[in-house]
Every structure is written in C-alpha cells, then in structure tokens.
Computed example of a mutant assay.
Amino acid sequence: MPFIEESDLLDLHKDIDKAQIINERLLDQIKFKNKDLRKIRLQRNILLGFTSLFIVGTLAITSFTAGLSSKNSFENQNNLLVSLDSLEAIKTRMGNLKVQNEELSLVKEFYLAKAFLDKEKVYSVQVKSFVENNVTLASEALTNTLFVKTNPFYAYSLGNFETLDEAQSFRKQLVNMGFKDAFVASYQDGKRVKIEDPY
C-alpha cells in the first residue's frame, strides 16, 4: 500500500478546508437571499395594494369629475395621461421585482436540494481501516472524507458521490495510484449501508 506524503496530505486538507469555507459562505448567502426574498415579497404585496387603490381612486375621481362638468374634460384627459405614465412605471417596477423573485427562487431551490442530498445515500471509496481510533488522517469537519466506525474497525473513506458510477470511477483512479485494496461503499446518515460492486 503506498504512503501519502505529509505535504500532500496537508495540501489535500487545505483544499478541503477551502471548499468547506466556500460552502459555508454559500449557505450564508442563501440565508441572506431568503431574507431579501421575504422583504421583496412584502414590498411587492404592499406595492400591489397601493397600486390597486391608486388605480381605483384615480378612475373614481376621473369619472366623478367628468360627470360634473364637461368644461374640464381637457384637464381630465391630462390627469388620465399622468395616471397612465404612473401605471407604466409601476408595471416596470413589478417586472423587476418578478425577475428578482425568480432569481431568489433558484437560490432557495439550491438550498433545499442540498438539504435533501444530505439525507440521501452517498457513495465513498474506502482506502483503509484501522483497529484503533488513533489516526489523525481525517476530521469530521472535512467535507470529502468519511471516518466511520464499522465494528470492530474504523474505516477511512475518500470522496462523497451521488452516484455509484462516479464512485467507481474515482476508485479506479485510486487503484491506479497504488491503493489496490480500495473499494466502494454506500453510506446514509453517517453509517455504512453496504459494500458496493467495484465495477
């Protein structure tokens, strides 16, 4: 079995830590976008309410004043034109809010999909097992490594894959690097479900 150089292992851990920091930043952005989404929805609803009241009020006032005097018909037409211009501005604002709402919906869907995948079965490639838990190769804080107790051993696995094909491909790469005993296993909720077919 080949040995991993300490510098390579440190580089691997640094890369994994960077990926985890990026994931945490993305989650923070998702939370921030969700707050913005709620605020935009509230603003949109308030804006729609005021727009409806404005339009109804403008139409009521216009029709009331048009019925009272025919002398002021020219002024009523000017008022109606001003109202139509305001209506166009409101329509433009509503269109912008709709685009923002769609963008925030995509962010929300990504967040929900990630939460769903955390509960699904994942595949990983086990490269080593130990009798005692005295190995400092992995930390549970790292996102692409698994260190799981499989009685009576502690299993060390690399990679988290959604599909068996991806894990098998990664296993082939590890075998070519010298990890001849590597095999694919499926995990769910932090526990090994079964050892998968290597091919």
Rank of each mutant, 00 (worst) to 15 (best):
K119R: 14
K31Y: 13
R192A: 13
V193N: 08
K194F: 14
N133T: 00
N133S: 08
V175L: 07
L42V: 07
G57R: 03
N151T: 06
N176G: 08
I195E: 12
A185K: 00
F183W: 03
Y154W: 07
A89H: 12
L142F: 11
Y199W: 12
Y123M: 04
G49I: 01
R93C: 08
F170C: 03
G67F: 13
G57T: 05
V148Q: 03
L26R: 11
E166K: 05
L112H: 09
R41D: 11
K14R: 15
K191I: 10
L142S: 07
P152F: 01
T58C: 09
T145K: 00
E196M: 11
I195W: 04
Y199M: 12
S70C: 09
S169M: 04
N176D: 15
Q168M: 02
K121I: 14
N160Y: 06
D11C: 07
S105G: 09
T51H: 03
Q43T: 05
A115N: 11
V122H: 06
S69E: 14
H13F: 04
E5T: 07
E120C: 12
D8M: 06
H13R: 13
L9N: 01
S83I: 04
L146N: 04
A138L: 02
N96G: 12
S86K: 14
S105L: 10
V135H: 08
L80E: 12
R25C: 09
V131D: 13
L47K: 05
N23Q: 12
N144Y: 07
I90Y: 03
F110R: 09
A182I: 00
S52I: 01
Y123H: 07
K33M: 11
R93T: 10
L137E: 02
L47W: 00
K91M: 14
F3S: 05
E75F: 13
S7I: 07
Q29R: 13
G159I: 04
L164M: 05
L53S: 06
K14D: 10
A182Q: 02
P2V: 14
T143A: 15
G159H: 03
A138Q: 01
K71Q: 15
Q29E: 14
V125W: 00
D197W: 10
E24F: 06
T92F: 13
V82E: 10
K33I: 12
I30F: 07
L97K: 03
G159Y: 01
E24M: 09
K172L: 02
F50H: 05
R25Q: 09
V135A: 12
G57V: 01
I195H: 06
K14H: 11
V175Q: 10
Q173L: 10
S83N: 10
A60E: 06
R41G: 14
S83F: 06
G49V: 00
L87I: 08
M94P: 01
F50Q: 01
